[in-house]
Simulated scan of single mutants.
Amino acid sequence: MLKAEDFCLIAAVDSDAVLESCLRRSPDVASGRLPLVVIKDAKCMSAAYNEGLSRTSAAICLFAHQDVYLPKGWLDQAITTLNALGEAHPDWMVAGPYGITPDGQHIGRVWDVTMKRELGTRGFAPTAVGSFDELLLIFRRTENFRFDENLPHFHLYGTDMVQMATDLGRSAFAVELPVVHNNRPIVSLGGGYLKAYRYARRKWRARLPIYTSICALTDNPLPLWRARWRRRHVKARPDHLSADSVEIARRAGYE
């Protein structure tokens, strides 16, 4: 059975201000109960998380964005939820609070600051998924697993991770562990996102379509074109956060 000392939190950080305002303010982190490994200056997210894995031997590694806030009591809730998941699905390797099923349905429970509302629903059962929103990934350590550092930039590594788990005969589940995502919108799906999209599409071509939180990985370019069109009026990403993470958690009823 899992216990608190089995957990470690890993974050790739490019803004100390955002880290201090969100992830490091999480009560379990601030108290030291949940250790935090910070990675800076990585060439891509896969490289950052592989570095994080090399710095801890924890059985459960949490890969979180710097702008995520874990509400009071989150670690205890995670222990209970993941122990139950292990009993029901002993082969699980990856979990997270928000995922996308193989047929494209979104499942989870997260407060999205940009959208000013909770995404998902309360009380859902653990649900098998084909990809995750990467704001928080929960990894049950598997011997010799490494993120694919050929996947460029900082996108789609959650989708890649789930597909790699499938290759290992393991499973991935969205579970009810609500968090606050104090995010700032991605303006463009060109550049780094497009490079990651093209790489993931080539790598997993035999399994397409694969649905993600932004659009489907598919040989048909239309889903990506539509996603890029929907973002045509998104303003430049601000340097500052637009909300207080703790206040949002309280208003959302998470603590």
Rank of each mutant, 00 (worst) to 15 (best):
D148M: 00
Y157S: 02
L222W: 15
D103C: 10
H65T: 15
D244A: 09
L224V: 01
Y193Q: 11
V234Q: 09
W225L: 11
D219C: 14
R141V: 09
L222S: 05
S57P: 14
F132C: 07
D244S: 06
G123W: 02
T121Q: 09
L75I: 00
R55V: 03
G169M: 02
L168H: 09
L194C: 12
L208I: 07
E143I: 10
R170K: 15
V180R: 03
P126R: 00
Y254K: 01
W111M: 09
R24I: 11
T218V: 05
Y254F: 15
V187P: 13
T56C: 14
N183V: 07
F154V: 10
A236D: 09
K195Y: 14
E20P: 02
I214E: 11
F132G: 13
D28P: 11
W74M: 07
R33P: 05
L194D: 15
D167Y: 03
Y49V: 00
A125W: 11
G253W: 14
C215G: 06
R184E: 08
F124K: 01
A174F: 02
G86H: 12
V175K: 10
R140A: 10
R117D: 04
V18W: 13
W92K: 08
G130F: 02
M115W: 05
R25Q: 13
P223L: 01
F124Q: 04
A88V: 12
P126D: 02
G32C: 10
S131Q: 03
V129I: 06
V18L: 04
R207V: 08
T127F: 06
P90T: 00
P97V: 02
S213H: 12
R205G: 08
V162T: 06
I210Q: 03
W204I: 10
I10E: 08
M45G: 14
I248C: 04
I100Q: 08
T80Q: 11
R117W: 12
N83P: 02
L23A: 02
E134P: 15
S57A: 15
P97F: 13
D6W: 08
G123M: 03
G192D: 03
P71E: 06
R228G: 05
G108W: 12
L194T: 13
N50T: 08
A88P: 01
V162M: 07
N144V: 00
L53R: 13
M161T: 13
N83Q: 07
K40Q: 10
I210G: 01
F63Q: 03
I10T: 06
Y49S: 00
A200H: 04
V29Q: 01
A11H: 00
P27S: 07
